Amino acid sequence: MQDLKTIEIETNPNPTASVIWLHGLGASGHDFEPVVPELGLPANAAVRFIFPHAPNLPVTINGGMRMPAWYDIKAMDLDRIVDTEQLMASSDAVARLVDQEIARGVNSEKIVIAGFSQGGAVAYELALSYPKRLAGLIALSSYFATAATVRLSEANRDIPVNVYHGTRDPMVPESLGRVSVAKLKEMGLNPAYQTFPMEHSVCLEEIVDIGKFLKQHLLV
C-alpha cells in the first residue's frame, strides 16, 4: 500500500505527543477534525493530531462500490468476514506514520492510536503488534477483527486501552465491543469499557472521556 495522505492539526508548535486517529468506512480524515477542540486539552498542550485518509477500495457488502476503506468487508455477520490481508496492509501503512512521528522527534511512548469502526480494527492490530512502546489505544464503535492472528508485541503487552461503544449501534452491534474487550482480557490486557445510548457515532461525553485519557497518558 502506498503512503497514506493525511490531515495534521497541531495544538501548539513543536509537538511532544501525537495522536493518529483512523476514520470509519466511507469517511475521510476530515471526519474527526472537529473533535480536537472538544477534547478539553490544556491550552499549553503541544499535540499533533494526524488524521489519515483510507485508500479507495471496492467493498463487497456495498455491491463492490469503491469507497474509502481500510479493507474489504465481505459479509455483515457477527464474525465480520473481512479481507485480513488488506487490514494488515493498512496496519503497515499506519505503522509508517508512527515511524514518521518518531523520526520527527516524538517519543513512541507519547503516541496514541485511535480508530472508529473499521479504523478501530486497524488500530487494534497496529497498536498491539507495534514493536516499540506506545502510549495507548482507543477503539470506538469497533471490533477486534484480527484477535486470532495478532502478534502481540512485548512492548505493548500491557498498553492502556479504552474501548467505547453505542448501545443502539445497528452497524457494529455492541456485543462486538464486549467480545473485543473479552479477547483483550484473555491476552492479559486490562481495557476500560464504556457504553453510551447512541447509534454508530460519537457523543460529547465520549469525547470528553477520550480527552481525559489523552491527558493521563500523553501529558504527564
Rank of each mutant, 00 (worst) to 15 (best):
I111T: 04
I113P: 01
I113L: 06
A114T: 03
F116V: 04
F116S: 00
F116W: 05
S117K: 12
Q118D: 14
G119L: 07
G119V: 09
G120C: 10
G120V: 05
V122T: 14
Y124I: 13
E125Q: 15
L126N: 07
A127Q: 07
L128P: 05
Y130N: 09
P131F: 07
P131R: 03
K132W: 08
K132G: 08
K132T: 13
R133N: 15
R133W: 06
L134M: 10
L134N: 08
A135Q: 02
A135I: 01
G136Y: 03
G136S: 05
I138R: 00
A139K: 04
L140M: 10
S141H: 01
S141R: 00
S142R: 02
S142M: 03
F144Y: 15
T146A: 15
T146E: 10
T146Y: 03
T146D: 10
T149F: 01
V150C: 13
V150Y: 01
R151N: 15
R151G: 14
L152S: 12
S153N: 11
E154P: 07
E154M: 10
N156K: 09
R157E: 15
R157Q: 15
D158P: 03
P160H: 01
P160Y: 02
V161Q: 00
V163L: 08
V163N: 00
Y164S: 02
H165E: 08
R168D: 11
R168T: 08
D169T: 04
P170I: 01
P170N: 01
M171K: 02
M171T: 11
V172Q: 00
V172T: 03
G177E: 05
R178F: 14
V179I: 15
S180F: 03
S180P: 04
A182M: 15
K185W: 03
E186N: 14
E186I: 11
G188Q: 09
G188W: 06
G188R: 08
P191G: 07
Y193K: 05
Y193L: 13
Q194G: 12
Q194H: 13
T195Q: 08
F196V: 05
F196S: 02
M198P: 07
M198Q: 13
E199Y: 06
H200S: 10
V202R: 06
V202L: 11
V202E: 09
V202I: 15
C203L: 09
L204G: 10
E205A: 13
E206I: 06
